[in-house]
Design a binder for these strands. Sequence first.
DNA 1: ACCTGAACACCGTTCAAGT
DNA 2: ACCTGAACACCGTTCAAGT
Lengths: 243, 243
Amino acid sequence: MAAQARRHQRRNQVLSREQILDAAIELLDAGGEGALTVRALTERLATGSGAVYYHVGARDELLDAATETVITAALATGPSEEGATPEGQIRDVALALFDAIAEHRWLATRLTLQIVRNPAGPVTVRIFERIGRQVGALGVPRASWFQATSTLVHYILGAVSQHGRIDGDASGVGPDADREEFFDGTSTAWRELDPEDHPFLHAVVPQMREHDDREQFQSGIAIVLAGLTHLRQRIEGVPCTTY
Amino acid sequence: MAAQARRHQRRNQVLSREQILDAAIELLDAGGEGALTVRALTERLATGSGAVYYHVGARDELLDAATETVITAALATGPSEEGATPEGQIRDVALALFDAIAEHRWLATRLTLQIVRNPAGPVTVRIFERIGRQVGALGVPRASWFQATSTLVHYILGAVSQHGRIDGDASGVGPDADREEFFDGTSTAWRELDPEDHPFLHAVVPQMREHDDREQFQSGIAIVLAGLTHLRQRIEGVPCTTY
DNA sequence: ACCTGAACACCGTTCAAGT
DNA sequence: ACCTGAACACCGTTCAAGT
């Protein structure tokens, strides 16, 4: 009764775009991309397939919209501290993406797709703008801004894509159990390789077993940032003893 | 007649695993992942669907096998020069992957998937072993080998994933025309954004328009390598004036 | 051992029809 | 304007049957 103000709403609109997206995200979180079928969605919403097409469009657009919703929410939390360093703010953005994908595994594939196919869309724009500004603040010369930012984004996407491991199947028996099993399998497989042909993999088995994904990700960011700083200083001729 | 030596071959085997994979790769190259249907494949091979399942298994295994075939071929070309530097050899591997994906766009998605889901498979093993050895030769301390190699592989995968742009649709009107159009669209879209909210994207439009993907990729590798070297030297306490 | 192809259980998408 | 749901044109996969 109170909401009679909405224009052009002749009949009672029982379904909204947000409701559809929320239901879609639930299905995706529970069972991966394969679990998001139009039929499963309409059943959950107790509606017909046409309603989904009316409100959000085809399945691909539905996936894009769900991606945009989650990424926007993940990036909404501003910089963690006043006066944080540029390095810290870049790390914050990267970790926000990392954590979003940890919570929504299907995002790994979809985020890359979105950035690749829709460079003018809000997801790509927000990520590039957030990181790019800090690259400037880092002291990278203006002519290298695009190169530097692209390198950071590429690393972040590559690293973060490794965490959408379990795909089409069910929600599974808790990520920890899966994780243990996964690393056990990998390390025994690597150990069974011919040591003559694979000295590196043999040497690295213990490190692989004990590494923490999130820590490794942060170290990776630090490495890329160190590379940017190093090359900048070579370019500008600043004596390297200043850092 | 000459081949009567093959054991267990009662009847004339008219179809081989390689023939199926070759036909699959042709379909993938021509029309992307969406074009590889069991029906299209069996029509091209003039056979029944059961034959495909008999020789290579389900569609997912077919895609994995095709990926393995192409990546193995791409990595088969050895180091380009005797006595090349570790940096040069890492760049060679990276460029081999870059070029393979430029030729087979569908590889972008599938290579990441393979590395993520099948760490003990030949594709992952070969890439990690090739790069990992050079990381050692680079002087990275042994305890950081896995971290350093993972960072490189993550960057390479992330960067290289950006080049499988056109997906399900047809082979298109030549990549150059597509490319021009794509960058035109992106730059006008970025220019239309509010300059107050997006100073970085506005500043970077000309760089985006003129950049060369392959060059940018090589610079990115150089940045990551610089980061590895820099951090190594900080750890080992080598005075930074030596480089 | 190798291959056929009909049959099955799904898909995404459209669209005339209803309110 | 908003929604329904039958109908359509596809999928991947299986499996009894053939040679």
